[in-house]
Design a protein around this nucleic acid. Structure first.
Lengths: 215, 215
DNA sequence: TAGATTGTTAATCGATTAACAATC
DNA sequence: TAGATTGTTAATCGATTAACAATC
């Protein structure tokens, strides 16, 4: 019944393919072989072909791949042809930045609501939205279809919000809080742990020293 | 000569261990076995022990791990005991959010300089910093030790900045631009591709549909 | 047709998990 | 000492790479 799942590693590479193909398009390159692309992307041609063949046969033997076509296919695979209604929960530094990020609109991501609990913020403008009271979130979700909730609240407020989202059928969470959210199986959560990312950088900066010490 | 490198997978898990151990500390839990921790973190106990033993023997047979001690060790491994001087390049939405992010200070990350090319912004305050002219970056780096540069400029301005950083001996780059930076071997770059992250989420939201289609 | 490059199967490599002796 | 749990070696699993027949 279940299709065999595509591995996380593959899925994480898809947006990168999409970016490189976009660049090729911008440069009016119409055709590319896995070998050429592999050189540009610094991965093996085998991996490219294997990755793509999880989803279909997009190439042509003896020719390679048609760039506009492959670009379009990956776009479809990534779900970028659909419109995505998003809400923002938590108008802090990060939340504010995301709400004002211009490129989202272009790609069909639209903030349809913005929420915070701070009375000083409620009613103020943010991007195209008036900031709403977080207490009205549940009510709002009844009337408006929302695909993705961007969570940018402090660590300990996050789980309560997930509950509300779950009850109201929001399927996707883009989590910028530092919390490890407990998500029902019907939902999907993509975490952006900024401090984790920064820490892996500081690790690398003194890796040699550390490895010498513990060896 | 070279120590055997620790795999990326392990390094990416370290900050997560650090977070969980921090929680345990907050709850005054002093001792934990790999088995208990594995249950909390939803990974295998084997993996925890394997991961940690890349860096040393932090446990005690028959007892488990001392939480404060292990926390401290991971802190050291991640390089969090050192102070980190950062600069921000690019005062857009994301840059501004990062510069104002409070938690950095607490953990020893300090913005010592903030740069942009926009004359309207130069001279204005951002956090504890006056926004400087990007043209003064090179000069600034001669006088000030900088460990990490946060790059939050548009895609096509990024590579020029990397050049300047490289010449002036900045070792770490935390890249928020959409560009794939070409980095000299002496430097380390941690990328935060926000749109990539969002795309993997939209992929998941319609994965079943896509797999059915291509199966 | 000859040359190129795919899609796909098979081989290799590395990471995760299991098992267990060492030892607190 | 008996029980628990580590550190570490061995087995398994999955992902990456290589090879090649199919085919444009």
């Amino acid at each position: 019944m279940d299709e065999k799942r595509v591995s996380v590693a593959v899925i994480k590479r898809l947006p990168r393919y999409y970016r490189f193909l976009g660049d090729l398009l911008d440069n009016n390159i119409n055709r590319i072989s896995s070998k050429e692309l592999s050189k540009k992307m610094n991965i093996t041609a085998s991996q490219i072909r294997q990755d793509l063949n999880n989803f279909g046969c997009f190439g042509l033997q003896g020719y390679g791949y048609n760039v506009p076509n492959l670009y379009k296919e990956i776009q479809k695979i990534l779900g970028l042809e659909e419109e995505h209604n998003m809400i923002l929960v938590g108008v802090g530094n990060i939340g504010r930045a995301l709400a004002q990020y211009k490129s989202f609109e272009k790609r069909g991501f639209r903030f349809v609501g913005v929420f915070d609990k701070n009375p000083d913020l409620i009613g103020k403008e943010l991007g195209n939205n008036k900031i709403r009271d977080i207490n009205d979130l549940s009510k709002f979700l009844v009337d408006t279809e929302v695909n993705i909730a961007v969570i940018a609240v402090p660590r300990n407020s996050a789980s309560k919000i997930v509950e509300i989202l779950a009850i109201n059928g929001v399927k996707g969470i883009w989590n910028f809080s530092n919390a490890e959210l407990d998500i029902p199986k019907s939902m999907f959560c993509e975490n952006v742990y900024l401090t984790d990312s920064l820490m892996t950088l500081t690790y690398r900066l003194h890796e040699d020293e550390i490895l010498k010490k513990y060896s």
